[in-house]
Design a protein around this nucleic acid. Structure first.
Lengths: 213, 213
DNA sequence: CTTTGACTTTTTTAACAAAATAGTCAGATA
DNA sequence: TATCTGACTATTTTGTTAAAAAAGTCAAAG
């Protein structure tokens, strides 16, 4: 009506919605965010949200897939720059940690309410793990091809490595008293992750001296 | 009254109580065991239990401490037999896993209800972890002394190693659909634990080739 | 095609009674 | 005196139901 009104191209509209949902999700988590609030944030009616997304889950699924897509893009870009298997793995550890930090609220949700975790989130988590183990498998095989690593089953190794990292994160989070992670706790966590990764890599390297794992 | 009645020497009485409590604890867990049931199991009145233990928590604390004591005894005996740092660590992994299996119900409780975990259990868990990391520290130092390991901080390393093992357990349990662990799942778990431990040890061994962790 | 207000349905919360369980105690028993 | 019990109280859990909040729907309007 008003010629001054801000009109958003339909293409971008979903981006606005996703942005608002993302903000709420990161700040308060899935359960503590209502569709009404998201709608209000972008001066929209709740019903309008349902025009773009059939339900709450779909909306948040889109948010997370969005984040994952961005993360994967960054990941692939960085991986392409590296040729060394060691460095690929260490870089993965770093990037993954940053990603973990960025969406800690969501991660916390995933970690703490794991039992009543919506199938949706579980699925997304599995996908994330698949990407991670895929890259790891590639890196391990690359290391093996260039003769610095020795092992039998790259995929199995990748899963073990992935579990190790996740396990360390979980143990760290269990020790946290508050829900927020302090800078100090973060430092300790990334330090542990690096050390574990270093030992793991090192263990693979000179593994040929004894029987293969 | 009846001369045929089974009279238990007072000394052994608490053992009967502990045995009954242990059985219930292993079968149903802390929350699902009532004092009334334990009393009934040994044909005693509930009030009598409170003569021996001031409250439910104390009783179960005694049960767990009992188990831990036995485990520690076994552990120390086995450790004393070994001189090789590698083998000490691997043996610890094996024994700890068996212990984990034996008291899986309790462990499950500890793992799943960790947030509302009674301070008591937390304390016992910490103690357990202390013993584990203590032995690990000793083993690591022994390995260092004999020149096969290279690292900076043995205690830190022990904590990392302990977390790794626990992390693997947790990740495995998360993937379990049922509450019971099948033989297959158990095999996979112990296999993973062994591999991780092997890699870890191996990583320490030839670590001196690159900078120390 | 997009948006909305008013609507219905489903889920969460609050309050409170009923049931189950932890814990107490005066007195019995040996 | 040391051990035990039945009958008790106190606390926690469970079940029920009404109110509130949130999800989700839809006819109609721009």
């Amino acid at each position: 009506m008003n010629t001054n009104e801000l009109v958003i191209e339909p293409e971008r509209k979903v981006d606005f919605i996703l942005k608002a949902a993302q903000k709420r999700l990161g700040l308060y988590g899935y359960e503590k965010t209502t569709m009404q609030e998201i709608a209000a944030d972008i001066a929209m009616s709740k019903a309008a949200l349902y025009y773009y997304y059939p339900d709450k889950e779909s909306l948040f699924k889109a948010v997370i897939e969005n984040e994952q897509k961005e993360f994967n893009l960054l990941l692939e870009r960085k991986m392409a720059e590296l040729n060394d298997a060691d460095r690929m793995i260490m870089e993965l550890v770093e990037l993954r940690h940053t990603h973990f930090r960025n969406f800690l609220n969501l991660s916390k949700f995933r970690l703490s309410d794991h039992h009543k975790m919506k199938p949706l989130l579980k699925e997304l988590y599995e996908k994330m793990r698949g990407i991670e183990t895929g890259i790891l498998t590639t890196a391990f095989l690359k290391g093996k091809a260039s003769g610095i690593f020795n092992f039998d089953d790259a995929t199995e190794l990748a899963h073990l490595f992935s579990d190790l990292l996740q396990g360390i994160r979980i143990m760290q989070m269990r020790r946290m008293t508050t829900l927020e992670m302090t800078a100090d706790e973060n430092d300790r966590l990334i330090s542990m992750l690096r050390k574990a990764a270093n030992l793991f890599i090192n263990g693979l390297k000179y593994n040929n001296i004894q029987e293969s794992v």
